[in-house]
Write a protein that binds this DNA or RNA. Structure first.
Lengths: 345, 345
DNA sequence: ATGAAAGCGCTAACAG
DNA sequence: CTGTTAGCGCTTTCAT
């Protein structure tokens, strides 16, 4: 391996000390402009590449941020990541990304890897299985900031960026009630995940507030994938009376429900009104278009990253450190899949 | 800041030298089992965390791999990334991800960042604008492997993982011809991107082989986003005779075409047969279901990463170094959007 | 099987 | 504004 060009080589070349070279290269104010110029030129002509390992070792900072998501391959998550990447790159941070595949075991292992990689901060959307956060303890102890987004642990001492899931589903449920739905089924994911637990609450509250009786049979907890529609539809068709309102907690599954229902000759929204969640592309491509909850995913990525970085860069102010929860605005988008009485909301 | 626990502390604690501790912790064979155990236990009880900066500085390896994609937020790319992440994590590599936003300028800047971050290898799907690869020169010079996937530069000295785009569209075009389409329009992205240039070739060859005359008017080069369908449809409707076959180079746009056509009362596939590209979820959710080309995106991620890592880990064998191109299998999936004569392919 | 010593390349006190 | 010095924590000869 060829020898690396170091600041010592540059120093020798320009007849200055390594310190000055180091300062010049990192735009330290106390270096004369002419000196800096000379150094920068020499660096370029010698083909110098700063050694980030040495720099990190000395500064105890990696300038990188870890992100752990349940799955990389999801319209929602990839949109969040896009927002995060934009801000991180702008601010000079690298993004180290891994996925937990919805498994706590993998999340723990990923967390350890991130810790050992010495990321300056960690952004996490929790895997479903449990509410365990012991594996973040090393981060807490070392005061490396951990910020949760979307799927946050229940323990309320963790900073998180979320939407108001309860309110979102409250609104959706109320909308279906106003559309004349008498039996409303709510299909959602693993109830150990706060996101779904909160949505269930919103559903219950809305029913209550409108004089409906909550019936556990109307709650279907299921993996919300592409095939979910078939499974949900089969369950619905066995119910008496047959449900005429359906809340499905993501658009992929909502779209797949729509298809499964239509395949059986059941009309949407006349026989069953459907509301999805996320406002993914697909909600605008199926017919009828899906009513859904607009989830500001890209924005969530931006906000989460911006807060983390502010926290890292503001060495003095620790204002954000004690911010508990940042709630982003989400809103119900009403489209044809749930409009049973003309255009009314 | 509290003092870090180092191998010196462990050494002192167990009465051995730092060298032995280092060896024990990295599973060097020449350490007695009992000694290793003692060291590992001490490390644990002292709360030791290996300092990866020091280790990287010494070993000149970061154990991380950079990935640059045009956009994080795309069903195709996120699926590729998921495949990459799986393999990288398995092999003990971190994934540093950034997006070029389809801009050469950002790609160049991202490449520099990756270089300065000292990634052990780089995986790139090129931004569209040009075929420029000068910004990878520093990698080539230092013999840091760069592997392209999907969108590869034309210069044929770059290793790449691809599908046979020409063949894929050849098959799709032939299929439409066999379905009785007399005028076939091909909508694709920026023709400076090899992927689209190759597809155009496949389209031309298929026309030629079936006695059709190629007409440049039938090629629409356009940004393939959610709104593309409207733009494509407007163009088609101005053509005489009206096209009755349509190849759209991604499923999002193909689906949006489908909708735009249906909105205008044009029947698919009877009036216009459509074939998309990628086999995204959406192709199975619109009606009629989209015929499309199955693009093994997840697999492409796995293969690209596996090859890169093999290259990195096999210090002796440099077999893969001279592999030029790995072509993955893709295949036409025929669904209702292009079936004009019953079930025939 | 274990240890001593040197150095990877940088930055931050401190001094001038 | 510039320089001297020391050390971040690890791995790796080379020696025993």
């Amino acid at each position: 391996m060829k020898k690396e060009i170091t600041i010592y080589d540059i120093a020798e070349n320009v007849g200055l000390s390594p310190t000055t070279v180091s300062r010049a290269l990192s735009n330290h104010p106390r270096v004369q402009e002419t000196t800096r110029k000379k150094i920068v030129d020499a660096a370029k002509s010698l083909g110098y590449q700063s050694n980030i390992f040495a720099s990190s070792l000395r500064k105890r900072k990696s300038k990188s941020i870890g992100v752990i998501v349940p799955r990389l391959n999801s319209p929602f998550q990839s949109s969040v990541l896009a927002g995060m990447e934009k801000i991180a790159t702008q601010s000079g941070y690298n993004l180290v990304i891994s996925q937990s595949m919805e498994s706590l075991e993998k999340e723990i292992s990923n967390t350890e890897i991130m810790y050992n990689s010495r990321v300056d901060g960690l952004l996490v959307s929790k895997a479903g299985t449990t509410d365990d956060i012991d594996h973040f303890l090393p981060f807490f102890k070392k005061e490396i900031p951990v910020l949760f987004f979307d799927r946050t642990p229940e323990k309320n001492n963790c900073t998180g960026v979320v939407i108001n899931n309860t309110q979102a589903i409250y609104d959706a449920t109320e909308h279906l009630i106003k559309q004349g739905c008498k039996r409303i089924v709510h299909a959602l994911g693993n109830l150990q995940i706060n996101v779904y637990a909160d949505r269930l609450k919103g559903y219950k509250y809305a029913l209550m507030d409108h004089g409906f009786v909550f019936d556990a049979e109307n709650v279907i907890s299921i993996e919300l994938d592409e095939e979910a529609g078939e499974r949900i539809t089969k369950k619905i068709l066995k119910m008496h009376p047959r449900p005429n309102g359906l809340l499905v907690s993501n658009d992929t599954s909502a779209a797949s429900c729509l298809m499964a229902l239509k395949k059986r000759g059941i009309r949407v929204p006349q026989d069953v009104a459907i509301v999805g969640f996320n406002n993914d592309l697909i909600s605008r491509m199926v017919e009828p278009h899906l009513s859904t909850v607009n989830y500001p995913s890209y924005h969530m990525g931006e906000v989460a990253m911006k807060n983390l970085i502010n926290h890292l860069d503001d060495e003095h102010e620790e204002i954000l450190q004690k911010t508990n929860t940042i709630t982003l605005r989400s809103e119900l988008i009403i489209r044809d899949s749930s409009k049973r009485y003309g255009d009314s909301g």
